[in-house]
Simulated scan of single mutants.
Amino acid sequence: MTTGASPPGVAQAKGQGVVADRSAESAAAGKTETPFGVLSVLVVEDESFTRMVLAKMLGTLGVKAVHQAADGESGLAAVAAHAPDLVLCDVEMQPMDGFGFVRTLRASADSRQRTLPVLFMSGRVDDDRKAQAHASGADAVLAKPVTPASLRDALGIALGAGLKAGQPA
């Protein structure tokens, strides 16, 4: 089911639909396979503890591969090295912040990098931040601290944006 409203903790930057989370129903039915098992995700976050927590949450959700980078510059290198399907990116980092990271991706000669889904994570998710995210090319903004539920919803946004519909995994 796709809805026009963002779930709590996920603010849309480009107005894409949200795929309803059915993982609780699957768990209750004894199914462990998730729709996220085909995903490769890059986490770009300057706080090592937060990176570790996000990587563990992604693993628990069944994500196939999780890569990590400590800032925008190393994130760009990780995108080139690992070709992830989705990027979770902190906004406030040094020396290159999330806005610079996604603007560089969108200006890339590589068409895959220009369309790579990027979900920002920020402690501030107001209209100004959402407008900045949209202007830079990000697909959505997740409120920090990211929770397992908001992370599932964010992955649902990525699936709704086309990963499930045939983009390479």
Rank of each mutant, 00 (worst) to 15 (best):
G15R: 08
A77P: 00
Q12F: 13
F49C: 06
V102C: 11
Q16F: 15
F99D: 04
G100S: 00
V41Q: 00
P84D: 11
V87Y: 03
L39E: 01
A20G: 05
G98Q: 01
Q94V: 08
L42K: 06
A11H: 04
V10H: 03
C89P: 04
V43Y: 08
L88W: 03
L88S: 03
D110Y: 02
S108P: 05
F36Q: 02
T115I: 06
F49G: 14
K56L: 14
V43G: 04
M96F: 04
A109P: 04
A11C: 02
V41F: 02
T60Q: 10
A65R: 15
G17I: 12
F120C: 08
Q94S: 05
A29T: 11
T60W: 08
F99Q: 01
A81N: 12
V44A: 03
V44G: 06
M57Q: 07
V53L: 14
T50G: 07
V38I: 09
T32H: 13
G17T: 14
L105E: 09
K56V: 15
E47W: 14
G72F: 04
V18C: 07
R103S: 04
G72S: 03
M96Y: 05
A28T: 08
E92C: 09
S48R: 13
A81L: 11
L58K: 01
K31C: 13
G30C: 03
D71W: 07
V102T: 10
